[in-house]
Simulated scan of single mutants.
Amino acid sequence: MPEVQIGDLHVEVVRKNIRSLRLTVYAADSRIRVAVPTRTSHADIEQFVKARRAWILKHQANFQARVRPAELQYVSGETHYYQGIQHVLQVHTLDGVPRVVCAPDRTLHLYVRPTDSVQQREKVLTTWYRAQLKQQLPTLIAQWQQVVGVQVQEWGVKQMKTRWGTCNIRAKRIWLNLDLIKRAPHCLEYVVVHELVHLHERLHNARFWGLMDQFMPEWRAYRDQLKVSLGESGGKPDAC
């Protein structure tokens, strides 16, 4: 990805088939990214960034001032999220196949081998999260396809650092971020609807947001909830 130095700011520049310039400052590392129309000149990009320098520095300072959550060790007593609800992790050792059991008392029971490392414990929990999300998505996607009036050819789940979802319009394929299983169900629904609406309208323009208002009037509240960090994971920008 091309990078440019504008004054004292290091900026990633992405050229896309869009109509206007878009500026993003990422919470996780204070990285600056500008998406610009394909033929935008360097001078226009420089002017755009310099005009927003104060806004950029303000957001970088706010992100850097946040208390960073302690790195997870996957030991008993830690807080982990499932469907937007805090669960307490309880680790048990066994000689059989590792697994996770979600109890009604908001406890996640993690069964691992005595010799399993932190990374192996994380993998067991991540595998369980992935299975839960994949179990929920078929019904959710089928329901909202009828509402939105589109049909996807394929969908999948993957870990993404900067997006909650993506849509390949030509292939009619959507991807959902694995971390959505940690969020409230209506946040997951918002991202599903967001990606489905892209099959009607590729751009984030007035028509796109009008369709979002039509299909999911409460989408703004759900989007805002996604912007709030859960504690163990850094905030991400809006879907797409």
Rank of each mutant, 00 (worst) to 15 (best):
V34H: 07
T115H: 15
R52D: 08
G77M: 14
D95E: 10
Q64K: 11
R113K: 15
Y111S: 06
L94Y: 01
T38I: 13
D44M: 13
L72Y: 01
Q83I: 02
T38N: 09
Q60S: 11
V88N: 05
Y111N: 01
Q60H: 08
I45P: 02
Y81T: 08
R52A: 12
Y82I: 10
A70N: 03
A61S: 10
Y111H: 08
L89Y: 06
L72C: 08
Q83D: 03
E46V: 10
A65V: 02
V97I: 07
T79H: 11
Y82M: 04
K58A: 12
R68H: 07
T38F: 08
F63K: 02
W55I: 05
F48P: 08
T40N: 03
E46M: 05
A65R: 05
G77D: 12
T107H: 04
G96V: 00
P114N: 13
D105V: 09
Q73E: 08
S117T: 15
A103R: 13
I56W: 00
D44E: 15
T115Y: 14
K50D: 09
A54V: 09
A65Q: 06
L110Q: 03
D116H: 08
A61F: 01
H80T: 14
R66W: 05
L94W: 03
Y82H: 13
Q64H: 02
E46D: 11
R53W: 00
P114I: 14
F48M: 11
E71K: 07
K58Q: 11
S41K: 04
R39H: 10
I45L: 13
T38A: 13
Q86H: 06
F48C: 12
V36G: 02
T79Q: 12
L110P: 05
I85V: 15
S76W: 04
L57V: 14
G96P: 00
T38Y: 05
Y81P: 07
L72G: 09
R66L: 15
R68F: 04
P104N: 06
A61G: 05
E71R: 06
D44R: 13
P98W: 03
V75E: 09
S117M: 03
L108H: 03
T38V: 15
R106Y: 12
I45A: 03
S76V: 10
R68D: 07
H92G: 02
P69G: 14
A103M: 11
E46Y: 00
Y74D: 07
R68V: 10
